[in-house]
Design a protein around this nucleic acid. Structure first.
Length: 289
DNA sequence: CATACGTGGGC
DNA sequence: TGCCCAAGTAT
């Protein structure tokens, strides 16, 4: 089976099995798509759902968000994680208001220039919000192609040129087919071709999967590095930020008292939050979002 | 190119 | 119980 035939199979599977996510609804605005893409960067769909609804109700347009203080965006981000994404989304909203007439750009380069919009997100917004044809290569698609055509259980640790070329070879010719492929290949990776315990028996392209046909050989590449968290600066920053989300403001001492295992680390974390602009110092000396 | 950057659910 | 993972970006 050639690639177009496999693409068609995935499209048919998608039509029958895709999740009815609100940012994929026909009436969802480009801004709604953009907000979803920011929230979905490293955060699971189930946790994004309620936050996305609340965010769009409160800030239905880029201009609405741009009119707010960035600290409000960080507070509304809640516990989605990586709060700098909220900060960048706010900054992107300002750029859209000031440089794009308030409309989310459709041009890839214009999108890339926005804070927090990298290679993947730019292609995703152009594709899902504007129907443009682009290679949309996220962790799901990388894994799907790695298995389906590469015969490897996992893709390389960092996105390679070879992966981009392979993905380009799969991209259908028309805008409509390309955007459908982007959405369906991602969904396949999210629901069937998962990182662990993939449901190959339910896969629409199982006969063509090199990895499956080879007997699902175990990963034999370099050991994949995990993400440490307990005791890290990241966790410490999260604790301090968590307190600030529910308080109007706090003193340094109050904040530092939240992390007693390593006082020096706590001071460093507070300093880095200030330096990142995630936290700001008020005239009275207290700190706030 | 490797590393820092939050958070919580599942096994 | 830890360890792995989740629609990445910026440096």
């Amino acid at each position: 089976m050639d690639r177009p035939a496999l693409v068609a199979r995935v499209a048919a599977w998608y039509a029958a099995h895709a999740r009815p996510l609100p940012w994929r609804a026909p009436d969802c605005t480009p801004w709604g798509v953009m907000v979803s893409e920011f929230m979905l960067q490293q955060t699971p769909v189930v946790r994004v759902l309620p936050a996305w609804e609340a965010w769009l109700s409160r800030w239905p347009t880029p201009a609405a968000l741009a009119a707010e203080e960035p600290g409000e965006a960080v507070r509304a981000w809640g516990r989605l994680g990586y709060p700098r994404r909220a900060q960048r989304l706010h900054a992107a909203a300002i750029a859209i208001r000031d440089e794009h007439g308030g409309a989310v750009p459709a041009d890839l380069e214009a999108l890339r220039s926005l804070p927090g919009v990298g290679e993947y997100t730019a292609a995703a917004i152009a594709s899902f919000a504007h129907g443009r044809r682009h290679v949309v290569l996220d962790t799901n698609v990388r894994r799907v192609l790695s298995r389906l055509e590469g015969g490897q259980q996992y893709p390389p640790a960092t996105l390679t040129r070879g992966e981009r070329e392979r993905a380009a070879a799969w991209l259908p010719e028309s805008d409509a087919d390309a955007t459908a492929w982007a959405a369906s290949s991602m969904e396949l990776g999210a629901l069937i071709c998962t990182a662990d315990a993939p449901r190959c028996d339910a896969c629409p392209v199982q006969e063509a999967c090199v990895w499956l046909v080879a007997g699902r050989p175990a990963w034999d590449g370099p050991p994949r590095v995990g993400q440490a968290y307990a005791g890290t600066d990241r966790q410490c920053r999260g604790v301090l930020l968590g307190a600030l989300r529910t308080a109007d403001a706090a003193s340094d001492d109050t904040l530092l008292a939240l992390w007693t295992s390593d006082p020096a680390q706590a001071r460093r974390a507070l300093a880095s939050l200030l330096a990142d602009g995630l936290v700001r110092r008020r005239p009275d000396g207290s700190v706030t979002l």
